[in-house]
Protein backbone atom coordinates (compact mmCIF):
# COMPACT_ATOMS: atom_id res chain seq x y z
CA UNK A 1 0.00 0.00 0.00
CA UNK A 2 1.27 3.49 -0.72
CA UNK A 3 1.78 5.93 2.08
CA UNK A 4 -1.17 8.16 2.68
CA UNK A 5 -0.56 11.83 2.47
CA UNK A 6 -1.08 13.74 5.65
CA UNK A 7 -3.39 16.76 5.42
CA UNK A 8 -0.38 19.06 5.55
CA UNK A 9 1.09 17.58 2.41
CA UNK A 10 3.01 14.76 4.05
CA UNK A 11 5.87 12.81 2.61
CA UNK A 12 6.72 12.92 -1.05
CA UNK A 13 8.26 9.74 -2.27
CA UNK A 14 11.93 9.44 -3.03
CA UNK A 15 11.37 8.84 -6.71
CA UNK A 16 9.86 12.25 -7.22
CA UNK A 17 12.62 13.89 -5.25
CA UNK A 18 15.17 12.18 -7.47
CA UNK A 19 13.63 13.12 -10.76
CA UNK A 20 12.85 16.63 -9.72
CA UNK A 21 15.98 17.82 -8.06
CA UNK A 22 17.77 18.24 -11.36
CA UNK A 23 15.20 20.74 -12.47
CA UNK A 24 14.93 22.96 -9.45
CA UNK A 25 15.81 26.00 -11.51
CA UNK A 26 12.22 26.18 -12.66
CA UNK A 27 10.00 28.92 -11.34
CA UNK A 28 7.52 26.29 -10.22
CA UNK A 29 9.88 24.88 -7.62
CA UNK A 30 9.05 25.40 -4.02
CA UNK A 31 11.69 26.66 -1.59
CA UNK A 32 11.77 23.24 0.06
CA UNK A 33 13.12 21.70 -3.13
CA UNK A 34 15.88 24.18 -3.66
CA UNK A 35 18.76 22.03 -2.51
CA UNK A 36 21.77 20.22 -3.84
CA UNK A 37 21.37 16.75 -5.24
CA UNK A 38 24.56 15.78 -3.42
CA UNK A 39 22.98 16.21 -0.02
CA UNK A 40 22.15 12.96 1.73
CA UNK A 41 18.54 11.88 1.73
CA UNK A 42 18.17 12.44 5.47
CA UNK A 43 19.16 16.04 5.06
CA UNK A 44 16.75 16.54 2.21
CA UNK A 45 14.03 15.02 4.35
CA UNK A 46 14.83 17.40 7.15
CA UNK A 47 14.72 20.39 4.86
CA UNK A 48 11.32 19.61 3.44
CA UNK A 49 8.86 22.26 4.34
CA UNK A 50 6.17 20.59 6.41
CA UNK A 51 3.52 22.96 5.10
CA UNK A 52 4.33 22.55 1.42
CA UNK A 53 0.72 22.04 0.41
CA UNK A 54 -0.29 25.29 2.10
CA UNK A 55 1.79 27.16 -0.42
CA UNK A 56 0.26 25.23 -3.29
CA UNK A 57 -2.83 27.29 -3.93
CA UNK A 58 -5.32 26.57 -6.66
CA UNK A 59 -3.90 29.50 -8.59
CA UNK A 60 -0.49 27.80 -8.70
CA UNK A 61 -2.02 24.66 -10.11
CA UNK A 62 -3.97 26.71 -12.64
CA UNK A 63 -0.76 28.38 -13.78
CA UNK A 64 0.98 25.01 -14.04
CA UNK A 65 -1.80 23.61 -16.20
CA UNK A 66 -1.70 26.67 -18.42
CA UNK A 67 2.05 26.14 -18.79
CA UNK A 68 1.40 22.50 -19.73
CA UNK A 69 -0.75 23.80 -22.58
CA UNK A 70 2.42 25.45 -23.87
CA UNK A 71 4.17 22.08 -23.77
CA UNK A 72 6.16 22.75 -20.60
CA UNK A 73 7.30 19.32 -19.40
CA UNK A 74 8.67 20.58 -16.10
CA UNK A 75 5.33 22.19 -15.32
CA UNK A 76 3.69 18.89 -16.25
CA UNK A 77 5.86 16.92 -13.88
CA UNK A 78 5.26 19.39 -11.08
CA UNK A 79 1.54 19.26 -11.76
CA UNK A 80 1.66 15.46 -11.65
CA UNK A 81 3.62 15.46 -8.42
CA UNK A 82 1.22 17.82 -6.72
CA UNK A 83 -2.08 16.49 -7.97
CA UNK A 84 -1.62 12.76 -8.61
CA UNK A 85 -2.25 11.65 -4.98
CA UNK A 86 -5.72 13.20 -5.12
CA UNK A 87 -6.43 12.02 -8.66
CA UNK A 88 -5.23 8.50 -7.82
CA UNK A 89 -7.51 8.44 -4.78
CA UNK A 90 -10.47 9.45 -6.96
CA UNK A 91 -9.69 6.64 -9.42
CA UNK A 92 -9.39 4.05 -6.64
CA UNK A 93 -12.58 5.25 -5.00
CA UNK A 94 -14.65 4.73 -8.14
CA UNK A 95 -12.88 1.69 -9.59
CA UNK A 96 -12.13 -0.26 -6.38
CA UNK A 97 -9.19 -1.84 -8.15
CA UNK A 98 -5.58 -0.75 -7.83
CA UNK A 99 -4.25 -1.83 -11.16
CA UNK A 100 -7.20 -0.36 -13.05
CA UNK A 101 -6.78 2.82 -11.04
CA UNK A 102 -3.12 2.99 -12.08
CA UNK A 103 -4.02 2.59 -15.75
CA UNK A 104 -6.70 5.22 -15.41
CA UNK A 105 -4.34 7.60 -13.64
CA UNK A 106 -1.95 7.27 -16.55
CA UNK A 107 -4.79 7.94 -19.01
CA UNK A 108 -5.84 11.01 -17.06
CA UNK A 109 -2.43 12.63 -17.33
CA UNK A 110 -1.98 11.70 -20.98
CA UNK A 111 -5.33 13.39 -21.58
CA UNK A 112 -4.21 16.35 -19.49
CA UNK A 113 -1.08 16.67 -21.65
CA UNK A 114 -3.14 16.46 -24.84
CA UNK A 115 -5.99 18.67 -23.81
CA UNK A 116 -4.38 21.20 -21.49
CA UNK A 117 -5.23 23.85 -24.08
CA UNK A 118 -8.92 23.27 -23.40
CA UNK A 119 -8.49 24.27 -19.77
CA UNK A 120 -10.18 27.58 -19.07
CA UNK A 121 -9.25 29.04 -15.66
CA UNK A 122 -12.33 31.27 -15.87
CA UNK A 123 -14.62 28.24 -15.95
CA UNK A 124 -12.80 25.78 -13.75
CA UNK A 125 -9.84 25.17 -11.47
CA UNK A 126 -7.01 22.82 -12.45
CA UNK A 127 -7.86 20.34 -9.73
CA UNK A 128 -11.55 20.30 -10.72
CA UNK A 129 -10.55 19.90 -14.34
CA UNK A 130 -8.24 16.97 -13.59
CA UNK A 131 -10.75 15.47 -11.17
CA UNK A 132 -13.40 15.64 -13.87
CA UNK A 133 -11.23 13.82 -16.37
CA UNK A 134 -10.45 11.19 -13.73
CA UNK A 135 -14.10 10.66 -12.86
CA UNK A 136 -15.15 10.49 -16.49
CA UNK A 137 -12.45 7.97 -17.33
CA UNK A 138 -13.19 5.87 -14.25
CA UNK A 139 -16.96 5.91 -14.85
CA UNK A 140 -16.52 5.00 -18.53
CA UNK A 141 -14.36 2.09 -17.40
CA UNK A 142 -16.83 0.68 -14.88
CA UNK A 143 -19.70 1.08 -17.35
CA UNK A 144 -17.80 -1.24 -19.65
CA UNK A 145 -17.32 -3.91 -17.01
CA UNK A 146 -19.83 -6.63 -17.73
CA UNK A 147 -20.46 -7.60 -14.15
CA UNK A 148 -20.32 -5.29 -11.21
CA UNK A 149 -19.95 -7.59 -8.26
CA UNK A 150 -19.49 -5.78 -5.03
CA UNK A 151 -19.90 -7.89 -1.93
CA UNK A 152 -21.78 -6.64 1.09
CA UNK A 153 -18.73 -5.48 2.98
CA UNK A 154 -17.55 -3.39 0.07
CA UNK A 155 -20.92 -1.71 -0.16
CA UNK A 156 -20.79 -0.95 3.54
CA UNK A 157 -17.43 0.63 3.05
CA UNK A 158 -18.56 2.69 0.09
CA UNK A 159 -21.55 4.33 1.73
CA UNK A 160 -19.35 6.40 3.94
CA UNK A 161 -20.51 9.06 6.25
CA UNK A 162 -20.44 12.75 5.63
CA UNK A 163 -17.32 14.35 7.08
CA UNK A 164 -17.31 15.22 10.75
CA UNK A 165 -17.46 18.94 11.61
CA UNK A 166 -13.77 18.81 12.54
CA UNK A 167 -12.81 17.21 9.23
CA UNK A 168 -15.08 19.57 7.35
CA UNK A 169 -13.34 22.59 8.85
CA UNK A 170 -10.14 21.45 7.07
CA UNK A 171 -11.82 21.41 3.67
CA UNK A 172 -12.38 24.19 1.17
CA UNK A 173 -15.12 26.78 1.52
CA UNK A 174 -16.83 25.32 -1.53
CA UNK A 175 -16.90 21.92 0.13
CA UNK A 176 -18.29 23.39 3.33
CA UNK A 177 -21.05 25.21 1.47
CA UNK A 178 -21.92 22.04 -0.41
CA UNK A 179 -22.16 20.16 2.87
CA UNK A 180 -24.62 22.71 4.26
CA UNK A 181 -26.80 22.15 1.21
CA UNK A 182 -26.41 18.35 1.39
CA UNK A 183 -27.49 18.44 5.02
CA UNK A 184 -30.67 20.20 3.94
CA UNK A 185 -31.67 17.13 1.88
CA UNK A 186 -33.65 14.23 3.35
CA UNK A 187 -31.20 11.64 4.71
CA UNK A 188 -31.96 8.89 2.18
CA UNK A 189 -31.53 11.29 -0.71
CA UNK A 190 -28.28 12.64 0.67
CA UNK A 191 -27.06 9.05 0.90
CA UNK A 192 -28.15 8.39 -2.68
CA UNK A 193 -26.22 11.44 -3.92
CA UNK A 194 -23.06 10.42 -2.05
CA UNK A 195 -23.40 6.82 -3.18
CA UNK A 196 -23.88 7.94 -6.79
CA UNK A 197 -20.92 10.29 -6.73
CA UNK A 198 -18.45 7.99 -5.03
CA UNK A 199 -19.32 4.74 -6.78
CA UNK A 200 -20.09 6.15 -10.22
CA UNK A 201 -23.10 3.83 -10.33
CA UNK A 202 -25.88 4.22 -12.90
CA UNK A 203 -29.48 4.89 -11.89
CA UNK A 204 -30.31 1.21 -12.34
CA UNK A 205 -27.43 0.04 -10.15
CA UNK A 206 -28.28 2.56 -7.45
CA UNK A 207 -31.93 1.53 -7.44
CA UNK A 208 -30.95 -2.13 -7.06
CA UNK A 209 -28.43 -1.43 -4.34
CA UNK A 210 -30.75 0.76 -2.29
CA UNK A 211 -33.74 -1.52 -3.02
CA UNK A 212 -36.07 1.10 -4.49
CA UNK A 213 -37.82 1.22 -7.89
CA UNK A 214 -35.84 2.86 -10.70
CA UNK A 215 -38.38 5.69 -11.00
CA UNK A 216 -38.05 6.49 -7.33
CA UNK A 217 -34.28 6.63 -7.55
CA UNK A 218 -34.44 8.92 -10.59
CA UNK A 219 -36.83 11.33 -8.94
CA UNK A 220 -34.82 11.32 -5.68
CA UNK A 221 -31.62 12.18 -7.48
CA UNK A 222 -33.12 14.73 -9.86
CA UNK A 223 -35.00 16.51 -7.12
CA UNK A 224 -31.89 16.50 -4.92
CA UNK A 225 -29.74 17.92 -7.71
CA UNK A 226 -32.17 20.76 -8.36
CA UNK A 227 -32.44 21.42 -4.64
CA UNK A 228 -28.64 21.53 -4.35
CA UNK A 229 -28.44 23.97 -7.23
CA UNK A 230 -30.98 26.32 -5.65
CA UNK A 231 -29.29 26.06 -2.28
CA UNK A 232 -25.80 26.73 -3.68
CA UNK A 233 -27.00 29.73 -5.68
CA UNK A 234 -28.49 31.34 -2.60
Amino acid sequence: MPSRLLPDGGPLDAHHADTLRARRRTVYSQPGWNMSSRQPKEMRDAMRTPTSSDTVGHDDLDRLLSAVALRDRVAFETLYRRTSPRIFAICIKVLRDRSEAEDTLQDVYVTAWNQAATFNPQLSSAITWLGTIARNRAIDRIRRRRTVSLDETTVEEIVDESPTPAALAQLSQERQRLELCLQALPETQRKAIREAFFTGSSYAELAARMSVPLGTMKSWIRRSLMQLKTCLER
Partner: peptide, 20 residues
Amino acid sequence: ARLMPLNEDVAEMMPPSHVW
Protein backbone atom coordinates in the same frame (compact mmCIF):
# COMPACT_ATOMS: atom_id res chain seq x y z
CA ALA B 1 -17.88 23.42 -9.76
CA ARG B 2 -20.88 22.49 -7.60
CA LEU B 3 -20.23 18.77 -7.16
CA MET B 4 -16.48 18.25 -7.55
CA PRO B 5 -15.67 19.58 -4.06
CA LEU B 6 -16.98 16.18 -2.89
CA ASN B 7 -13.67 14.80 -4.14
CA GLU B 8 -12.06 16.42 -1.11
CA ASP B 9 -13.66 13.73 1.06
CA VAL B 10 -11.34 11.13 -0.43
CA ALA B 11 -8.04 10.66 1.42
CA GLU B 12 -5.11 11.28 -0.92
CA MET B 13 -3.00 8.28 -1.94
CA MET B 14 0.47 8.40 -3.38
CA PRO B 15 0.50 6.48 -6.67
CA PRO B 16 3.38 4.02 -7.20
CA SER B 17 6.34 5.52 -9.02
CA HIS B 18 6.03 3.15 -11.99
CA VAL B 19 2.91 5.06 -13.10
CA TRP B 20 5.06 8.13 -13.70
